[in-house]
Amino acid sequence: MSQQLLSSSTSDGNSIDIAAQDDEVTEAAPINTESNTIAYAPKGRLPGDLAMWFFILAELTAFALLFSIYAVVRAKNPEMFAEGQAGLDIRAGLANTLALLSSSFFVACAVASVEAGRKGRACIELIAAISMGAFYVVVKLTEYSHSISLGYDITTNAFYQFYYLLTAFHFLHVVLGMLILIYITLRVHKGAYSDGNIQGMESGACYWHMVDLLWLVLFPLVYVLH
């Protein structure tokens, strides 16, 4: 991206006017200075690969079934579930929700940075996103360890079966998402998206946002509504 493009956008009060003087600017990306947005994705285009969207759809369907079964079983055993949910640490659930939301935010910023040709900034944002994911992993493992040390494992009752099943299934998605983000970070660092084709990155980003979306449902379902 030329310095002229950058300066013209900043003089208009553009919100992408981050100090990026030291950042390696790789490729001219079209910037819409009138609407203050990066105008890479044309209207009507689905970000990322279509195959990834079918995969996301399949994942969402599987989780929707699990959420529904959980809700039905909970309605049949309200006391058991209320007791189990009361034993969970809401602070851990809250911390994980804030971490995943922040991670999604950093990933969205990283995609915008790559579109603007700022790969150095994108790498930092991706590392921040991965760090938030790692924070989630540590909190979740600590939570599991605490529950198991108190004698609550998958064989305790129906609530703990669903708790471990739902959260561990989601946990695996977080781990996979983190691996995808690490791969994307390495690709960004190598300048792999500097030719303007960022479909691969968009696909990985959308997968990560899906993981966040699923946790948004899990958090109230398991931690809040009891």
């Binding site: 970000p47 935010f105 995609v111 980003a205 946002h209 979306l213 948004l216």
Partner: peptide, 15 residues
């Protein structure tokens, strides 16, 4: 929150 993620983070607003 989900609508915000879908429309703005996933960039599906114009999809």
């Amino acid at each position: 929150k989900a609508a915000m993620i879908v429309d703005y983070f996933m960039c599906l607003r114009d999809a």
